[in-house]
Design a binder for these strands. Structure first.
Lengths: 249, 249
DNA sequence: CCGGTTTCTGCGTTTTTTTGCAGGAATACC
DNA sequence: GGTATTCCTGCAAAAAAACGCAGAAACCGG
């Protein structure tokens, strides 16, 4: 096999699978590992692959894992935020959890909107406070420094006292079988109370979190009224949720 | 699995869920915990994640701070804060109001101090949250955007339920004849409740505010246990307060 | 066709990287 | 204050890379 031919094959494999292992290549092409290494080195010098210990990666692979500025997947989250805002009407009482998706929602709220927002998340509350026309109700209790949210029985009791029109829930993981799950016990308690109190529960989730599971269960799909993702509602990934009777936006 | 690949996966998980546990990662990827730790360490050195005991956090969600540029009379306030800190002992429950003097106090707290701080002021709470060893209890209710503090009957009711060891009161105006006065009706209601609940009330005030009066009365001098200013306790300006039986520091 | 040169390839050795493990130290949690 | 994780350090084994070298193939000018 010619050298050029070999390198073309390697390049093809890299672009196809986003990664190659020197060990597997040398058995595939039946050459020594040194030869593969030399080929990878040449291709790396030409900038066609990224050489790493044990093989090589495609260039696109590395771009994905470099979130350059600010919030991860900000564009998707902004799209979700805009869809969510379409559900808000003037005068509503809206309960929200914490998380970066909700942050994006808070930042995106139109200035003329008049509504009352309730939350226990400090970063989210800060965003709400910047808005000219919305009332902000803060749920008080002990602050969890990790999640920057108030947690505890007082907070839960307070949530149970209110009956908001909407509840926006930022999700950590949602799955057709296991419903919404999370990894922080205290946060889960809060979310349960929020779901119970609210007339309508809207779940915000980026597509990546769909069909992922975390250790602690928040609620089943039947407790959710609406699911908002950055995807088109007709996307096959969302079919199970539509079938479960959830309004997908 | 390649090392880069693994790190990309970890980074992905961190950005997706805002946090990861070393223990769960090592079972997911099937490598030893040491490897995960080393990966997290590398990623942390590159500034891509924030390494913490037991795992790592996303960088994006973790920066909450209030712009506090150009605080008025910061040096005097720092002196006041240091005097105030001398009154704090480990394990105390401490209720504080809002205001820039209290902010300075919050910022000056020694890192090893273990105590519980209670407040309804958002900027002050943010400062408390940065401290490693103090518990933070947030008083919830409607947020006043002007004073960035929670106000209302719920907040007052909550204050009345607690019995803190100390109450640090940032003052707007204090006068030998009229006692403490303020200009925000809602804030005054809160401060009244705070004074009533607390075993010991310590009033922090820069000298400029001494012998000034605001429209709404908070309390008389007899309700105050201690007054802290940046002045020497023997200063003639403070004599009337000493005469009134207040411990001046 | 032929000798000389260059390029390519494979092999053995050395060096580096990576990974897991054991212990003691540090830290968090109760 | 005591227990249980978690962390760090050094170390050793395995994998991979780098290096030098030699044989083989290709190339080239005469």
């Amino acid at each position: 096999m010619l050298k050029k031919e070999r390198q073309a094959y390697i390049l093809h494999q890299v672009n196809l699978h986003n990664k190659v292992l020197s060990s597997s290549l040398c058995t595939e092409i039946n050459v020594s590992e040194d030869t593969i290494r030399r080929d990878l080195q040449e291709l790396a010098e030409e900038g066609k692959v990224i050489k790493v210990h044990g093989g090589a990666l495609s260039h696109s692979f590395n771009e994905v894992s470099f979130p350059i500025s600010g919030v991860y997947s900000q564009n998707q989250k902004r799209l979700i935020a805009q869809k969510a805002i379409s559900q808000i009407q003037n005068g509503m009482f809206i309960l929200t959890s914490g998380g970066t998706t909700i942050m994006e929602l808070a930042r995106t709220l139109p200035p003329q909107l008049k509504a009352t927002f309730i939350s226990g998340s400090i970063p989210v509350i800060l965003e709400y406070m910047h808005h000219p026309n919305i009332e902000v109700i803060l749920i008080g209790d002990k602050i969890s420094k990790n999640s920057k949210i108030t947690v505890g029985s007082e907070a839960i009791a307070k949530i149970k006292q209110i009956k908001p029109d909407l509840c926006f829930l930022g999700t950590n993981a949602i799955d057709a079988e296991h419903g919404i799950t999370d990894n922080d016990w205290e946060v889960v308690q809060l979310k349960k109370a929020m779901i119970e109190s609210s007339k309508k529960v809207i779940c915000l989730s980026i597509a990546e979190k769909i069909n992922t599971v975390q250790p602690i269960r928040v609620c089943g799909l039947s407790d959710i009224d609406m699911l908002i993702t950055e995807l088109d509602p007709g996307n096959p990934l969302l079919k199970t949720f539509v079938d479960a009777g959830i309004h997908v936006l």
